[in-house]
Design a protein around this nucleic acid. Structure first.
Lengths: 225, 225, 225, 225
DNA sequence: TATGAATGAGACTTCATTCAT
DNA sequence: TATGAATGAAGTCTCATTCAT
């Protein structure tokens, strides 16, 4: 009976999901260390010991919560930029989505960055990677298409992009109720474009700088041998 | 007896200082929750109970650690921009100083943002204010002098400025050893100016010096291989 | 179908045997309380729940392990004294066998005496009886034949006999590598005979013939290797 | 004030004593693993945490209990043999005392031999040493005085002595109420003397047998290589 | 008979904080 | 003001045992 088999597997998945959900709530409300496993178990509708069948310990459960958050974020962002076409528009869509989403889940987001236990090299934190890749790909495509300057370093602009968004959300939350996102988006795009399209809108004249660059280029060729 | 009085007061101050120093070390090494009051007391050379004569509880001690960090940061920044004259140069000086300093004290900096106990509205976190004000004043002066566009919103640009720096440091620390700060400074200033001087044809082309730097950077990359 | 029936029964027996073997290993390695039912199940190739189909609980399983040990000991001893004829020789054979065997299985032997759960009157411990009976029978036969003094109390000499052996093994194991058993056997027999043959001018030193025979026996064993 | 100073130190000692006493009771009643720290604390009249100011953990507390037992035993034995003069009489006094004492504190005695945690080289168990030394000294003195045969090996006789006593107590406790100690003492002394005074009543001459035995022993050693 | 996921009581231990001295 | 022994609440995790399948 297919149903029976299915049920068995699904039950496990459902349970794990319930646990992670309960844990998310608890961690958000009380923070990592103040949240109690007993409460999480109770609110997930399982016994305490059961938690340890699904997650090795509290930290692992916490990691699962964080991981789920990033996955969800990544999925949402992928969907958000799907509608846009040009790299420029995609960047705008990503900015708007990230801003809104982080604003909504700020506490969870903040939780993601906290290191609670003696620093772990690739534990919590590695989850971000998938999300960041979305940005990198947009920039890469932009460079490919000639929309963005080829010498732009995606890793640098990335800092500009996400750093500004994160800080902006923090400011918004500190300031008060009335969150104005549009000005942030506009500023951010202005800044990002200034960096990704440095040459645009300026007359180009062969000058000292260019001659120096040419010389360096020759140097590079020399060095390559 | 001036000396006697002075000694008495100073002793208290010294002791407080010793405690905060010991606490700083402990918090850095183990994090807020893993650091033990007993150890802090021991390494400060006082009894456990004495800690509570100077600080209400662990959290207050932690707040003191963070506060001292921000004060030191503010002092340093004030000194750093004193040498510069124009708002543009001051911004650059501030960027460079902040970047270097946060890179150096990253752990302490990170500690400052972590919420360890059930969220407290204005506890830890209010310390940042003094530091941020430095940035605001530079921008204000720039607008006064006509260097920056009057319609610029300092609070927005602030997010761009500090957000980028913080994220950049994080990236640098994650990536590896060889921290290249100049590219970040250049990008940051490009972005900030694009926002603060929107009329000026959008972006600023890097001048000779900057382009040479960029070329040299490429040389460095070559040398790395 | 005889075969089918037989197979069925045998399967159960085999399984029980596997469980007891796995348990023995686990108890030896980790001790009673540190050994885990889950591990025992795994290493026996059955599910955890299955253990409880064969043994009521952990304690019962432990008891089975101990019981098997004593049974094996009893069998071995029976065989060992079968070759000897006179009560004197049987006693010597039993001493030598017990000494060797306890030395070999010391940990298991020690396990047999430990009380792990709130003292149980006749649980673990009753297994010894079969083994002890061998000794009693030898003494009884000796008294019958007139070899031993009729007023000797077997229960007392029993303490002398087994107590000395157990302690001697403990000493040997504590001291070091090079276990010299013969001196222990000689002393033990000297003592036992002094008690069992009080009239005979106290103790009986083995005479020339006996000692030479013993030496030759050892030579023969050497030759067997 | 002498009283004040004294009180302070004494308070600690008293407390430690109270804890050890409470622990002894608990361990006797429930065994090592079933005894609960909480109960021990309560019955000692201190907080749970206080236990850990005096003893690192449960195991250390257990070790202290056992150590105190052996110390007390050693003291008692020393006193018991003080009255006797000749090695023979001292041996008898020691036998009688040990028998009575182990019978009285059997459970505690048994506890002393149990290894609860993964075997520890010199933890519990090393306490016995002081007690055993008493026996060794008596024998040594006896040999000095010519009361005991010089070729007697104290370490061997020790096994006879203590092994028999321990087993006898076990038997007595298993059998029933009416503990008859005298027969045991008599038998034990008979046996011990038979071993310690082998020459008595029998001429001993270095003879063929001995030379053969020595030769065989040498052969065995050769075979071992 | 066999399974193994689930249970949940309970144990040890830690450590911020207090308070008598 | 300073001490540091004492407190005791609280938390994580283990593991023998059960029971629905």
């Amino acid at each position: 009976m297919t149903v029976g088999t299915k049920t068995k597997r699904e039950k496990l998945a459902e349970r794990e999901d319930a646990i992670v959900s309960a844990a998310t709530e608890a961690f958000l409300e009380k923070g990592m260390s103040a949240a109690k496993m007993a409460e999480i178990a109770a609110s997930a509708g399982v016994a305490e010991g059961t938690l340890y069948l699904y997650f090795k310990n509290k930290e692992a459960l916490f990691a699962a919560v964080v991981a789920r958050h990033w996955e969800s974020l990544t999925e949402g962002a992928t969907a958000a930029i799907a509608k846009a076409d040009s790299p420029d528009d995609q960047l705008e869509a990503l900015a708007r989505y990230t801003l809104r989403r982080i604003l909504a889940d700020w506490k969870l987001f903040e939780l993601s960055f906290v290191l609670h236990y003696p620093v772990k090299e690739d534990g919590v934190g590695s989850d971000r990677r998938g999300y960041v890749r979305i940005f990198d790909q947009i920039v890469a495509r932009g460079i490919d298409r000639g929309t963005f300057a080829p010498e732009a370093d995606p890793r640098l602009v990335r800092d500009l992009f996400f750093g500004t968004i994160e800080y902006a959300v923090r400011s918004i939350l500190q300031t008060g109720k009335n969150p104005k996102l549009e000005p942030v988006v506009i500023m951010l795009l202005t800044a990002v474009r200034a960096v990704l399209k440095p040459g645009q809108g300026q007359a180009r004249t062969p000058d000292h700088a260019e001659r120096i660059e040419a010389a360096v280029t020759r140097l590079e060729k020399l060095a390559e041998r």
